[in-house]
Structure formats: structure tokens, C-alpha cells
Computed example of a mutant assay.
Amino acid sequence: MFDYDSELARYQERLLAAFDIRPGDRVLDVGCGTGRTTRDAARAASSGTTLGIDVSGPMLARARQQAEAEGLHNVDFVQGDAQNHAFVAEHFTLAVSRFGTMFFSDPVVAFTNIGRALSPGARLVQLVWQAADRQEWHTVIREALSGRQASPTPAGGGDPFSLADPEVTAALLTAAGFTAVDVVDVREPVRYGPDAAGARAAVLQLRMAKEWLTDLDAASAERALDRLSVTLDAHDTGDGVWFDSRAWLVSARRR
């Protein structure tokens, strides 16, 4: 399983500061994965509650194990799709997401459903990726494995860059019943492993890497993997393999 917590550690600090969680908050974490953000929110909402939702059973299993190991009793996890999950209406005082909202098939329906779960005036705070051509991790790995340079990805549901256009994202949130939309440019490096060998193993777990290798014959795949190793070696700082990246920190309020 790819270690997104390690990859996104620099973003985690920025995100937690933006959440501004109060002790009594009731927090919803959308697309929680293995639950790092959910658990951090639970510690901040010490007299409140947190709920993480994700479609991945294996990730949620790890999230529950970690929460138990850390002795957190105000956190829970549910397997489901935030686009249509039957949340308790107007229950949460804050909704958050760390790169978990870009894959909805119908973003307006999804954000409307999340909005119904929020109390009036409650905030939604999320990180989403900027365009593909602004992500070094995407462009150089794609070029290594596929031999093609990355091109800007058009907005649309179902891919990591579907919320890359701030105007489109603001319009989606407004249509879903949110107001006071604010978008902030955030730039942090992402870490793919402790060294080039570890990063290579991590990259090959990613869906995008598997897709780029799928149609290659054996010889072409071997050359692609050699190019990947050279790329990862070049980004090995001695303190991990790092790539540049850019995101939008998007906040809004439910009407």
C-alpha cells in the first residue's frame, strides 16, 4: 500500500493550521484513506468527535488499527462514498479533506451531500492538486515510464486534477450551496521514499504507473524501469526522494 502519509507530510502541517479545529468540533474527513488527517483532527477536537469516510476497505482497516494503537476514542471510520452516503443532517461543524475530493463522478452532487451534513455556516477545508503540468512528481515519472511529457489535464470528475481550475472549483462549490469560497496557492515537496530503491517500489504501486506500463512489451518496460531508476536517483537528496508539487487550499462555508 502506497504511503500517502509520508508523501504528504509537508502538506499535513499546512492543512492542520488551516483547519483551526476547536476542542468541541464534530469533524468529517472526506476520502480519509488510512486516517492520518482524521486522527490528527481527533486530537485537536479533544471533546468533540471525528468521522473518516473512504471507499477503500484496506485503507480503513489500517486507519482503525492506528486509531486504536494511538488510544483515540473520539474517532470512527465508515466505508462509503461521500457523494451519496446518508450522513446525519447538519451534524458536523467542520468538513475536511486531504486530496480526497477530486474523484467524484458528480462533484456538485457530492459537495451538496457533504453540505447537508454540515451545520449552517460550517466550513469545508480541502487540499486539491493544481494542474498536472505543475506537478514534478507527475511529469517526470510519466516521462520516465511512458516516454511522453505530461500535458495539462482538462477538468472533469474521476482524475487527480479534476479540481485544478480554481474558477471551476468555486463554481462547483457555489452550485452545491457553499459561499465565501477562498483559494490559496500552496507549494510543498512530496516524498516518495527514503531512497531511490524505496521510491521505485512505492511508485510501482501507483495506478498511474501501472497504466503507463500496461501496453509496453517486455523490452520497452525494462527500458522504462531503467529510466525510472535514473530519475529517482537524481531526486534522492540523501534524506529521501523528493519532488516539487503545487496544490490549492480551498475553503468555503455552508450557507
Rank of each mutant, 00 (worst) to 15 (best):
Q12W: 09
A63C: 04
L16T: 07
A45M: 08
G80F: 02
T49A: 10
D5L: 06
V27H: 01
A61M: 06
A82H: 07
G71Q: 08
R10I: 05
D29S: 12
G35D: 07
T34S: 15
A42P: 03
G57L: 12
D40K: 12
T34L: 08
Q79L: 02
A9H: 14
P58A: 06
T38I: 05
G33L: 00
R14Q: 13
R64H: 06
A63R: 01
A69F: 00
A45T: 01
V75H: 03
L51D: 05
E7L: 14
A67S: 00
E13D: 14
E70L: 05
D81V: 10
A45P: 10
S47G: 09
E7V: 11
D76L: 06
S47P: 05
A17F: 03
G35A: 04
I21E: 11
D40I: 01
M59A: 08
D40G: 14
A82Q: 04
L16F: 06
L16S: 13
P58R: 13
L8F: 11
D5Y: 05
R26F: 12
T50G: 15
A42N: 08
R22V: 11
V30S: 03
L60V: 02
G35R: 04
A45S: 11
I53C: 06
R26Q: 06
S46N: 07
H73E: 13
T50S: 15
N74E: 05
S6V: 10
G71S: 05
S6I: 05
A17K: 12
V78N: 04
D81S: 13
R22A: 13
Q83C: 08
L16E: 11
Q66L: 15
S56T: 06
A63H: 00
A41W: 00
L28T: 01
Q12H: 14
D54C: 02
R26M: 05
R64V: 02
C32V: 08
N84D: 08
V75F: 03
V75K: 02
D25F: 09
D81I: 04
V30F: 01
E68T: 07
E70H: 07
G80L: 04
R39E: 04
D25C: 10
G33H: 01
R43K: 10
R64Q: 13
A67N: 02
Q79N: 05
L28P: 11
I21F: 12
A63K: 02
D5I: 00
A63V: 01
G33A: 07
A41L: 03
Q83A: 13
S56D: 07
T34M: 13
H73M: 07
N84I: 09
A42F: 11
A44V: 03
A9R: 15
L8N: 10
G71T: 01
R14G: 11
R62F: 04
T38D: 01
P58V: 03
E13Q: 14
G31W: 02
F77T: 05
T37R: 10
L60S: 00
R36M: 11
F19P: 12
E13V: 13
S56I: 06
R26H: 14
E68K: 15
D81F: 09
A63E: 02
E70T: 02
A42T: 04
G48H: 04
N84F: 04
I21S: 11
L28K: 11
V55W: 03
D40Q: 12
A18P: 08
